[in-house]
Computed example of a mutant assay.
Amino acid sequence: MRKLARDLGVELASVPATGPGGIITREDVLAYSARSEPRTLATYAGDDSPWLSDAGTGSSVTPDGRQTRVPVKSVRKRTAEAMVQSAFTAPHVTEFHTVDVTKTMKLVAKLREDREFKDVRVTPLLITARALLLAVRRHPDINASWDEAAQEIVYKHYVNLGIAAATPRGLVVPNIKDAHRLDLKGLAQGLSDLTATARAGRTTPADMSDGTITITNVGVFGIDTGTPILNPGEAAILAFGAIREQPWVHKGKIKKRWVTQLALSFDHRLVDGALGAYVLSDVAKILEDPAQALVWG
């Protein structure tokens, strides 16, 4: 497997494992490599350089061959409008935390072997989602929105957990309705259903409405962290970075541990630095030691 990854230029630590006991399979490596491949470029007669051309997009190359113009489709247009509105309306602040998630990785491996979870996909994102839900329960002020028209702050007594999903049609952010009411297996099923629907292009406006807080899993692209833009109508978004084996001081000794980075962006009108830090710290504590969820859960 290491030779295949080396031949394809893939870093094994960045590949999500789907095999028994958390083993990275040949299919995992090939799928990750395929997602990392750049889009195929099309060439045109008399043109020395390739230009983007995707069948079915209605794209056209200018007469001089120097540009490709692609119509903005409805999903991408709505995404662009929402991101611009969010970026220029809500004052964004982002806080970061580097976390040892070795115990989380061991828990994921155990759950994959558990008969109760045999019909659902178990990933570190599942534990992160559970951790965020518990952090929201402990700090409910983070689960809010700013109503500019009414000049009110709206605190939500439910959590519709958004998961940012990259699709061929563009970025969509469907949410798991009333995610706070789900047990771990129910949350796993909700994540699986949500991502499958998004990838199939069947996400509806209702699926994306009334979100209260969001996770964006940039780690699936091998990215360590970022400064995510808030989903409109929400006060916070958590970026979950790639999990890598790194040297880490553990019990006074330098050891090889699984490490990731978390980034929490929030609306500074609603969330001050202390509240953001409390929420981010709680998520990190559960990822460092999932047993903490039993204490807070």
Rank of each mutant, 00 (worst) to 15 (best):
A90F: 07
G241T: 08
A34W: 13
E11A: 02
A135K: 02
D47T: 13
P38S: 11
R244F: 04
H97A: 15
K3Q: 11
P290F: 06
S49M: 15
G252N: 01
I254Y: 13
T18Q: 02
D183S: 10
M208L: 06
F96V: 13
V29C: 10
Q246F: 06
V84W: 07
V29I: 13
L191S: 05
G273I: 08
D141F: 02
R69S: 09
V159R: 00
K73Q: 15
T197S: 09
P247G: 05
P140G: 15
H157E: 12
A87L: 05
D207Q: 03
Y155M: 12
T79D: 05
G297V: 03
V122Y: 13
P290M: 05
P91V: 03
V101M: 07
E116C: 08
R6A: 04
F88N: 09
D183F: 08
S59I: 12
K256D: 13
S33Y: 11
V172L: 15
S53L: 14
V154K: 15
G21C: 01
S192N: 14
G21L: 01
E27T: 07
P63V: 12
K177V: 10
A5G: 02
A239Q: 13
T62G: 02
L161N: 00
R69W: 13
L270K: 01
Y155D: 08
L191R: 09
D119N: 11
G190P: 10
V10H: 09
L41V: 06
W258P: 06
F96D: 09
E152F: 04
A82L: 03
R244T: 04
A165S: 05
E27M: 04
T167D: 08
A200H: 11
R202T: 09
L30R: 01
D114Y: 13
S281V: 11
E113C: 11
P50N: 14
D147P: 12
V108F: 11
N217W: 00
D7I: 07
D64E: 09
G186Q: 04
L52N: 11
G170T: 04
L8D: 01
P140S: 05
G226L: 07
L126Y: 13
V120N: 00
A55N: 09
P71H: 06
I215A: 01
P91T: 06
